[in-house]
């Protein structure tokens, strides 16, 4: 088992401790941080952050959009993009079949959802990774959606927010997936030229080709607490250097200490944080604020 599959496995959704058939699946969730069994509804109210230990559980792109945007303010875009199998990739399974399975299990939006919505009244173009879709891996569709999200921000003269959770490049698309790193990084220049804020929110996990491209190009880069973020996977590093990894290695606080990110922000305070940040970044000393 490699680190990606290990990441995909948690958090575990478990059935009610009593074998009660009427209880819907996932009514109770065991916190991967403190192992406390939590009532799903209570957890939802706290935006899937464990009220006992503050562990930030992974959430879907849709849940993220719901917690991020003002009520009924968001609209989804670019849902018409579909991955194809450009190199007829086959490992233990065909890429085509993996796509079919993921479409069925997670939805047809691939590993990325694009939205326009308001955060405390400020319109924002946002791209949110869907980790459950093939580990949030970046292939041609994800790359294209990121670029379109950026272009939409330029069109609407609004900030661009990228929320990452990804194992890295989607190797099933061969070199085309590596090239998405160049494509998305290049497009970030459009936001710079238009002087529009580009904010990255790194969530658990953000690794490999996504980390080493667009995720680290924001004007402001923040991370959720205790997220695993880095270029190489911890196991690969351990195998390469043969040393014990330092405590908290590649976790949000580690990155903050090493000067690699601007701040660590609790999910429950994210909207307020972004509100103030966007106000600052959209303010112009030399011309009236838009």
């Amino acid at each position: 088992m490699n680190w990606i599959t290990r990441l995909i496995e948690s958090p575990k959704t478990i059935l009610s401790s009593k074998p009660d058939k009427s209880a819907p699946e996932g009514m109770w969730i065991k916190c991967p941080g403190c192992s406390e069994t939590l009532y799903n509804k209570e957890l939802s109210r706290s935006q899937m952050v464990c009220p006992r230990c503050d562990q930030h559980l992974r959430i879907s792109a849709e849940e993220r959009a719901n917690t991020l945007f003002d009520k009924d303010s968001c609209e989804e875009f670019d849902g018409e993009l579909r991955s194809i199998d450009p190199v007829e990739f086959k490992d233990l399974k065909r890429y085509k079949d993996r796509l079919k399975d993921a479409n069925k299990k997670v939805g047809k939006q691939d590993a990325m959802r694009n939205y326009i919505g308001d955060i405390c009244g400020q319109t924002v173009s946002a791209s949110i990774f869907e980790f459950k879709y093939m580990g949030g891996s970046m292939g041609s569709v994800v790359g294209e959606k990121i670029v379109r999200g950026m272009e939409r921000a330029v069109e609407r003269k609004c900030p661009y927010l990228l929320v990452t959770s990804s194992g890295g490049a989607r190797m099933q698309e061969s070199l085309l997936s590596l090239m998405q790193m160049a494509k998305t990084s290049s497009a970030a220049n459009r936001l710079n030229e238009a002087k529009l804020p580009f904010v990255c929110l790194l969530t658990d996990p953000t690794m490999g080709g996504v980390s080493a491209s667009v995720a680290w190009l924001g004007d402001v880069i923040i991370a959720e607490p205790d997220a695993l973020i880095g270029f190489a996977g911890p196991r690969v590093i351990q195998e390469t250097v043969g040393e014990k990894l330092p405590e908290g290695f590649q976790r949000s606080d580690f990155l903050l200490e090493h000067g690699l990110i601007d701040d660590v922000v609790d999910r429950r305070e994210l909207r307020d944080y972004l509100k103030v940040l966007f106000e600052h970044l959209m303010h112009r000393a030399y011309r009236p604020a838009c």
């Binding site: 080493a212 270029f231 190489a232 000067g259």
Partner: peptide
Amino acid sequence: AWPGIDAEERGQSEAIA
């Protein structure tokens, strides 16, 4: 790119990006 502790500490991802 080098997958090492030192490289991560100094921002391997950022440097490439």
